[in-house]
Nucleic acid binder design. Structure first.
Lengths: 329, 329
DNA sequence: TTGTAGGCGTTATCAG
DNA sequence: CTGATAACGCCTACAA
């Protein structure tokens, strides 16, 4: 910056003020400084700035979600809420290892990040990073076990309702639910939402039970076969994930059942690579993770000075309509 | 650090030396300082360190690969080559927008990253960031257009050979190749590798041509139907991506052809969610992106002082055997 | 409106 | 072996 100042014929202090848009500098002076800066391709050293202002304009995103399936949308939401030139994000993957997580945490604190977003590997509650960290922390996707922390999660119960509601609007009455691992809170919540919505309509889940199993295509296939045996006249299947839904439509095809003519299918997650390529493309519930990321960023930003609040905030999912559902003729 | 020094009863300078493992400090003194530090939960301010050492221990990963399909493995490779506590990575997604890319670049330079890894959206060459950046830059996955830059890419021609070689070893002779968009260099390279390897065996590609089309399941299905019509006795299909491979096995099923009993199928990319869930699970070529990331990190590290070299380095893919290929009985 | 001076938290260079 | 002291690059009272 010394060079810029010299080139503009002012002192370093004035150059700084000019560059930072402080009002107490003559327009012509500012102009000269700006010119000099761009001529020298000057870019301020953020570390020096951080030292003075105690703000780094960086945020840590600590994830355990190997494939980046959930972290990436959250990252992107956060990125555009912060604004490209305001805040940069450190992405760290702990790979499900709590030792590694502590390491990353130390590193991030050493780098004096202004805040932390923690994204768990699965949508169940996870251990808190602790109460007395020097920066605000937001848990996204997977809530913290500690109710004193602030967590932002997707509303799975609402999503389940949404899915079933859509199927009902399509005129379906014999609606089954095939979903993943019963030990996942998300599976339970989605199922509860689905069952509740059915009950409001005076309906029970087709096949007499929710089919819990695994988050895989293979389970989607197996469960569908069992379901068809027990309940051959099912007219809609709500799958707990897009993977499962892929398995479901696969078997429906094998059985020469038309989708959505005879059986409508709806997935969950909006994992585009799976859903949009399916035959037919899958209607699904989008988790709205970008929004989660955006809100996380806003909350973090707002909390820089003050405090963060606590508890678990739920965000509604979003129905994405493709061709695997349609009104009955 | 002042507090640490005080608590240990030494000067700030000595505390610094003790903490940084400098030899010129008595063991007992070091011990006291370390204790004080951990007692106060001290973590050094990296910005102050950066200011003085001119090294930040950060790297920018600039990507345009929305879904993180390619960036994430590269990031992970880089992360573990750097070592968790040595270097942190800024992940920036330019979303295919060159304006946004410039913004991110400015921000990263302002943050004085020690180096840059650029990951393109598709495996064809992309514009260079420029020759006179103040930090070393490595292009990964997608090479730079400027031969003066250093690029690390996956060897698609070799991958094509690898795939066909495997099919030949399985005793297949009538081998077809269905792949994606012909405007992709990767598609051309993989095809060339495949055709060459076939030629070495005195074979031609089954169906008389390589089927270029799109990187989608739908194209995989369509092309397979056409192929079967023209060449019903095909005994192996090399798909240019796992997506395409999914479409291929789908239609083979429809036609009651056993995979791999009658037709072996091999994909490309090792996109686990697609390949491992397929029926049967897909043999495929892994791009080895983690290795790319690791090597990028090492080169960057080595280049901090000196210079980087230039040109395009190719990395071999890796055969991942699952159940969609097997020797002919 | 502009310039001077002090300091942010470290490390490095010297003297002791 | 330890401790002053001067940077590193910038911001910000305060003085001119």
């Amino acid at each position: 910056m010394r060079d810029v100042a010299r080139l503009a014929g002012v002192s370093v202090a004035t150059a700084s003020k000019a560059l930072n848009g402080q009002p107490q500098v003559r327009a012509s002076t500012r102009e000269r400084v700006m010119q000099a800066a761009s001529q020298l391709d000057f870019s301020p050293n953020t570390h020096a700035q951080a030292l003075i202002t105690q703000r780094t304009g960086t945020v840590g995103l600590l994830t355990s979600d190997l494939e980046g399936r959930f972290s990436i949308p959250i990252l992107m939401g956060a990125e555009d809420a912060f604004g490209t030139d305001q805040t940069s994000v450190f992405l760290c993957d702990a790979r499900g290892d709590s030792i590694r997580e502590r390491h990353h945490l130390r590193a991030l604190l050493s780098r004096r990040v202004d805040g932390l977003i923690v994204v768990g590997a699965r949508p169940d509650s996870r251990p808190s990073l602790g109460r007395d960290l020097p920066v605000p922390v937001i848990y996204a996707y997977a809530p913290s076990e500690d109710p004193a922390d602030l967590s932002l999660v997707s509303d799975n119960e609402g999503g389940g309702r949404l899915a079933v509601d859509h199927l009902i609007r399509c005129g379906r009455r014999r609606i089954a639910h095939i979903t993943g691992d019963a030990t996942y809170g998300a599976a339970q919540d989605r199922a509860r939402g689905a069952v509740d919505r059915l009950a409001e309509e005076g309906l029970e889940v087709a096949g007499g039970e929710v089919w819990f199993g695994m988050w895989s295509e293979a389970w989607g296939r197996g469960a569908t076969r069992m379901l068809l045996e027990r309940c051959p006249d099912v007219d809609a299947i709500f799958a707990g994930s897009d993977e499962i839904a892929r398995g479901v439509v696969d078997v429906l095809h094998e059985e020469r059942l038309d989708v959505p003519g005879q059986v409508a299918v709806i997935g969950y997650d909006n994992w585009t690579i799976l859903g949009a390529n399916a035959r037919p493309p899958l209607t699904t519930i989008d988790l709205n993770l970008e929004q989660l990321g955006r809100v996380a960023a806003q909350r973090l930003f707002a909390a820089i000075g003050g405090t963060l609040g606590s508890g678990v905030e739920k965000f509604p999912g979003k129905l994405v309509t493709r061709e695997s559902t349609a009104p009955l003729r």
